[in-house]
Design a binder for these strands. Structure first.
Lengths: 201, 201
DNA sequence: TATCGTCGAATTGTGGAACAATCTACCACG
DNA sequence: CGTGGTAGATTGTTCCACAATTCGACGATA
């Protein structure tokens, strides 16, 4: 429901209400909510329950700060070790096979898969866990914003370039490319957010 | 209790048992346990309850992989922005004031404070949160291992050097220094772990 | 004797009801 | 119009109950 967009950003999730609606006990709902809080999708204020996280421009910047930290270190690790990343290659193949009218969701999924593949290739359980949190927040962001995405073939080309750089194995160059890529994505989302704020204001 | 060392590594925390001992209800204990699980101090296996995390050599390596990712990005951010880090300076002053027979705990605390100061100086809520998890795991590690720590004045000198490099502001040099520092810390803990395993074996 | 299966106790996961503490919204009053 | 108070709603926690699952002991069988 959260990632559906079927819940207003910032809306309050009352325990009795939702536990009844979901057909579970209040305790169970609270436990579930705690998990989502740890993923950053919900917030809890003492005695005031949980709300759906509202992401501001500062949050997007912050999410991408953490994302860059994790992803840059990941590429250092995989480039340093010369690790193959079959899943990333798969994602790029998926990009190549995209039609021009591919659904927004498909492109997002491939994007996510590509980056997650690199993270997972490090073999670091803890980096993966931290990145999972980042990805849910980005999904939440997407759900709330539906940002403008470039044409599928442009996104495909960009990721092909990233993968090639990874395989070429020049750490500094890969790092620079990824920082640019992430910076653009961050800007993209921030712009979408500002556009929406101007509408709702 | 976990960080006290008053709980065996890997020991099982039975719900009825602990909730009675702590004077709280089972649900409350479960909620508390969930929080500690997210901090990495406890593990849950379905239908088998929670156990105190046991850290192996692979875990230490992994913890430091994440730690390096976060800390290296943090120093890039603070060096790039030219941010002052008063709390880190304070920690170094603390190091300078240390007696030779300073307690192990005092040194550890200063060490933690120093590194946390850098993280917090980024102003990134999410990097700080992720780092908090790393630090609890390191504390757990310390509690379980009580590793050998160098003489206080050596630790002090090393952190003084790190701070000076930070203030000098050459990103690559700072990064290299920190990677070395963290690598040594990781090795230190890994050695302590192996030493203990040889004893218990 | 060793291995396997079965039964029973212990433990977890979940549900339901209750109650104190806290928050929120509304209303009366100055 | 602002203020204080009161009543209802909501959260945080407790206790009890019970199905599902796990674990260990016991005994049967080869």
């Amino acid at each position: 429901m959260i990632l559906d967009g079927s819940l207003e950003p910032g809306s309050r999730l009352r325990e009795t209400d939702f536990s009844k609606r979901l057909g579970i006990a209040r305790h169970t709902f609270r436990a579930a909510a705690q998990i989502l809080i740890n993923e950053g999708l919900l917030r809890r204020s003492p005695n005031r329950g949980v709300q759906l996280t509202v992401l501001g421009a500062a949050d997007i910047v912050d999410i991408f700060r953490l994302r860059e930290a994790l992803e840059i270190e990941a590429i250092r690790l995989v480039v340093g070790a010369g690790t193959e990343i079959p899943d990333a290659e798969l994602a790029v193949e998926g990009f190549n096979a995209l039609e021009d009218d591919a659904s927004w969701r498909t492109v997002v999924d491939l994007d996510m898969d590509f980056h997650r593949a690199i993270i997972d290739a490090t073999g670091s359980e803890r980096i993966s866990r931290a990145y999972a949190g980042v990805q849910s927040e980005i999904l939440l962001c997407m759900a709330q914003l539906r940002p403008h995405y470039d044409r599928p073939d442009e996104v495909a080309a960009e990721h092909r370039e990233l993968l090639e750089a990874l395989q070429a194995g020049n750490p500094d160059k890969v790092e620079a490319l990824f920082r640019r890529h992430l910076g653009e994505a961050s800007e993209n989302l921030t712009n979408a957010l500002q556009a929406r704020e101007e509408v709702t204001a």
